[in-house]
Amino acid sequence: MMPLSLFISALRGRFFLLKMITACLVIYTFAATSSPILGQQAYRIKAECTVKSKTVGSHEAGLIMGTVYYDVRIGRLIFDVKFPEKETWVFVDSVQWTIRNDTLISIKPSSLKPKLSVLHLSLNQQLGGFGLEQSGYTMTSVKTEQGLVISNWSPPAAARKKMGTIALASQERQLKSVIFYHPNGKILRKQFFRKYQKISNVSLPTEVIDEIYNQDKKLFQSTEYKNTVINDQAPDFHYRRDPQYRNLPSGSASPKR
C-alpha cells in the first residue's frame, strides 16, 4: 500500500503540472490576442470613399468615388476608383501607380504619403497628434481657448525655408482641425475632422473637409468614408496590388516591392 505522505506529494505534483499547463495557456492566449493578426489590434481598414472638390464661386468641380484599402503592415494606400474612370491608384511612399485592367500604366510622384494618411494615423491611434512628432515637428506652444486645446508646431530648422508652422485643435482628445501655414505666416490650408465613428476600437473621422487657399482662389474638398470594415479578412492581394509589368512606360522607376 502507498503511504499517505507519498500519495499527497504525488497529488501535489499533479496539481503543479495542472497549474503549469493553465499558466502556459494563459500566456499563449495573451500573446495571441496581442498579435495584430490573431488579436483585436486594428491593422487593416477598408471603406467606401468619396472625394468632392469645388472651387468657391466657380463651376469647377471634381468627384471621385471608390473603395480605399489600407494595411499598416504593407503600408500601401489603395484606391479602387469606380468614378470618373475605373482604375486603381496605389500610393507607395511618395509615388502613385495607376493600374488599369491589371496593367500598370503610369508611375507619378505623389504628395500623398500613406504613413501620414488619416487611415494610417487612425489605425495607429496617432491621429490626435497628426503624426507631427514622427515627422520631426516640435511643439512650441499649447493653450486652451473656447473648449479647444490649441497647439502650435514648428518644422525642423533645416526645413523652415519651405515649411511653415502647423496648428492643431483638439477637443476631448479628438483632433478637430489642423491649420497649415506658409513660412511667411499666411494660411495655406485648413482641415476639419468630423463625424467620428468608433469601429472595432478605431476612432475614425468619417468626414474630412479641406479648405485650400491657392493665390486668390479658395477650394473646398470633402472626403467621406462609409461602410468601414476593420481587419477585413480578404486576401493580402487587395492591400498590396502588385501590378503586372506589361506596358510599363519606359524610363519609369520600378515599383518598390
Binding site: T140, L148, N152, S154, N184, G185, I187, K190, F192
Partner: peptide
Amino acid sequence: WSMATTTASDF
C-alpha cells in the same frame, strides 16, 4: 520665417 499665432476662431 514667421511663427503664426493661432486663435480658436481660426478653426
